[in-house]
Design a protein around this nucleic acid. Structure first.
Length: 215
DNA sequence: TAGGCCATCTGGTCCT
DNA sequence: AGGACCAGATGGCCTA
């Protein structure tokens, strides 16, 4: 059974490589990482926050002191709310633009497609996932031959999908997750009438999985 | 016209 | 308090 591609990556990433997302700071990348679902961030786990719950104590304390600032008129409050909302919208728009820029950068390093067939967001993510998985497998196989180890006898089986797929076809070089509901490049192409599925790199030799195999 | 994709707005939640 | 992140809602655009 093939390892899950996200499980234990066999690839060592050095820092000599180019900044993956020009214009995107490391902090932003970290932010993306920290945005992954966290068990401590359960939506609604503080549902009673307004006037109670987690922050009730602090609010009560502030209220007892009579608030931090002088009460504002309805008009002023409404104006302030609108202003804050507008700023938040701007930030949100900006954030989404950054996210889209990162996605574009990702599209840029994936095996090229005809220009008019831009991958959708979900396709880009799934394709990238599968692509990385396939490259990892390629490196593994290359290592085998490089160090004079027995060449993997059954490269296709090694590369095959875990559903027992030693099909030796294009799909077999893609990760397990490409199976259910997910998108393998081949599937992606099949779903896209404008694109032609690549010629199957039928049972690529160890280390011989060329970049062009993904085209 | 229905369905898919996308951008934007919005309110809630968490963090600094 | 304010920023970041998230998910739901909404409307526009495009294609089969």
């Amino acid at each position: 059974m093939a390892p899950h591609p996200l499980g234990a990556p066999a690839v060592q990433v050095t820092h000599e490589t180019e900044q993956p997302f020009p214009g995107v700071s490391n902090e932003e990348v970290t932010c993306v990482a920290s945005a992954l679902p966290s068990p401590t961030r359960v939506p609604g786990d503080c549902a009673e926050a307004e006037g109670g719950g987690c922050r009730g104590a602090a609010r009560k304390l502030r209220a007892r002191r009579g608030g931090r600032s002088r009460p504002k008129s309805e008009l002023a409050l409404s104006k302030q709310r609108r202003s804050r909302r507008k700023k938040a919208n701007d930030r949100e728009r900006n954030r989404m633009h950054n996210l889209n820029s990162a996605l574009d950068a990702l599209r840029g390093v994936l095996p090229t497609f005809p220009d008019d067939a831009k991958l959708t967001k979900i396709e880009t993510l799934r394709f990238a996932h599968n692509y990385i998985w396939a490259l990892t497998q390629t490196l593994r196989i290359a290592d085998h031959s490089l160090y004079g180890l027995e060449p993997p006898a059954l490269p296709c089986e090694e590369l095959g999908s875990p559903d027992g797929g030693s099909r030796g076809d294009w799909g077999s070089v893609y990760s397990p997750v490409s199976q259910a509901g997910s998108l393998s490049p081949a599937a992606s192409l099949e779903e896209r009438p404008g694109l032609q599925a690549p010629a199957s790199p039928a049972c690529p030799r160890p280390g011989a999985l060329a970049f062009s195999d993904f085209l």
